[in-house]
């Protein structure tokens, strides 16, 4: 289970997360909604072990996480699909480099990159294109393929389908559902779209509220 327990995080004097608790169980889809600026993406980064919270704890399969960012243990157990695919890929990489990079970094065979690309509807002629030469939808498909490349046990989708057309949304959600069904991975789906979360989530959709402004001194 990937769990945040009473996580608190502040940027300067501004508290973004105030004693937030959330847990993602293997095999389930947890929906998380909330207004803009309430800290959904920050929570996603904390759960992906990219940001160290100032208070509370994150546990991964029952073990509290003590190392963050580069030195986090079980680094590849968690996948993250970012909200804006344009910012989430190196502009110098080709689409195939984007998908294959985790496999190359961990010295794994590249066949999986080809298979994932095919599953996500990316044809080989797109492989040599750079991010600015493909659409947002194609780029987000590559980002989903990249997130699944190392077969993470938990996948965090941070407003993954924002700005995408309905058919691409449906396709990406279906591919992640296939992955969840075949591996038993836990999924945290973060979105503004409560309708999507109601349909996708396997339980109740959690709502993250804006933290109260801390009094200025």
């Amino acid at each position: 289970m990937l769990e945040a327990v009473d996580v608190t995080l502040s940027y300067g004097r501004r508290t973004v997360l105030d004693r937030v608790s959330v847990s993602v169980r293997p095999g389930e889809v947890l929906g998380l909604a909330g207004p803009s600026g309430c800290g959904k993406s920050t929570l996603a980064r904390v759960l992906a072990l990219l940001l160290r919270p100032s208070g509370g704890a994150v546990t991964l399969d029952g073990r509290p996480v003590s190392r963050w960012r580069h030195r986090a243990p079980h680094r590849t157990s968690i996948g993250l699909v970012f909200q804006q695919p344009r910012l989430a890929v190196d502009p110098r990489f080709t689409l195939f480099d984007v998908i294959a990079e985790p496999l190359r970094a961990t010295r794994r065979p590249l066949e999986r990159a080809h298979r994932l690309a095919a599953e996500l509807g990316l044809t080989p002629e797109l492989f040599t294109r750079r991010p600015h030469e493909v659409s947002d939808g194609q780029l987000q498909r590559a980002c989903v393929a990249r997130a699944l490349a190392l077969e993470p046990r938990y996948l965090i989708c941070d407003e993954m389908t924002t700005m995408l057309d309905a058919s691409t949304q449906a396709h990406l959600v279906a591919r992640i559902e296939d992955y969840r069904a075949s591996t038993g991975a836990g999924v945290l789906a973060i979105s503004h779209d409560t309708e999507l979360l109601d349909r996708w989530s396997t339980g109740t959709v959690h709502t993250l509220n804006q933290p109260e402004e801390s009094p200025r001194t």
Binding site: A48, G79, D90
Partner: peptide, 26 residues
């Protein structure tokens, strides 16, 4: 601070690999 560097960290890239593959070329 760019998300693509975060993605590289999540993808198992070491610090040296991130410097070589992302920071230096950019």
């Amino acid at each position: 601070g760019r998300p693509f560097v975060d993605a590289a960290i999540l993808g198992g890239s070491s610090r040296a690999r991130i410097v070589r593959r992302h920071l230096l070329p950019n």
